[in-house]
Amino acid sequence: MLIWFSVLADWLVYDLLGLSSQNQLGQAVHFFVEDTTKIFALLIVMIYAIGWLRASLNVERVRDYLSGKPKVVGYGLGSGFGAITPFCSCSSIPVFLGFTSAGIPIGITMAFLLTSPLINEVAILLLFSLLGLKVTLLYVLTGITIGILGGALLDLLKAERWLQPLAAKAYARGQLSTATAIPPGQSSTQAASTMGWQQRHQFAKSETVEIFGRVWKWVIIGVGIGAALHGFVPAGWLEANLGDGQWWSVPLAVLMGIPLYANATGVIPVLESLLLQGVPLGTTLAFCMSTVAVSFPEFVMLKQVMQWRLLALLFVLLLVSFTILGWVLNLV
């Protein structure tokens, strides 16, 4: 089915625009047209479909479900829900406080918040359509693992010591009473379990409009960079410089990813080109995760609930785990 986008690009670029399929410019433009049309079409279809499925899932229900769960299963569940629950990153702070005051351990809450930016429907969809099933599965598994291990480690270190007063208050509140800490009647203001077709359609439609409106420009930027890499960087140059055998290329990729704050939509098209140019998989995925998950604005926001020490710990934790992940994947 996806071959149609290649045919479309052939027609647009080679026939209509009259560019040659033999030179670099023609190839780069073809790559750009094929990928943007393909990604746009997939995004619209998939965001709608996923929105439909998860319309009745929200952070309030996740919180109610997670509170009172033992830690052993809690990390996995927190991380898993982080991957599938729709919520705006501007809600991170209220979610953190809400979970904490419901008595959910910091580690489980952080497993939820760490996995959430790493794995989302747009990222998975793009990985799958551009890079295939194997890479997608690896990405999802490592994302969830980082959430679980990160959460467990924070609990081991008793991270609740390093909360800001506001969050410490929420934490104390959560410890006083157990699962019943949630004020009755406030737990789900949105109509909960029973959702009609009409409501699901409404939710899916608004999700599609909202997410697409937010990410389309990133797709263009990402594919543009990818196309430039594809067409103009001499084949083998990246491979020679960032290829196997250079252990430092992974931490370098992670560090480079930090200031490049983009969302997954913009980065994944670049990954495709990096891989095609022979950059190893581990280095590429480490770069991707670092770009997507570690951002200064996000960390500044978390400052409201966490002390510097905890923030720094989190920062180092993420960088180290992305680096290790990169090394391991480069070996296999």
Binding site: E60, C90, P94, L97, T189
Partner: peptide, 27 residues
């Protein structure tokens, strides 16, 4: 102010509160 938001039990913003009652949240 996060303390107020927390006191209303709201986790997904933006939310509408009318006369102290949470009317909608998260959308």
């Amino acid at each position: 102010d996060m303390t107020t938001i927390l006191d209303y039990g709201v986790m997904s913003t933006p939310a509408i509160v009318i006369n102290g009652v949470v009317m909608s949240a998260g959308n």
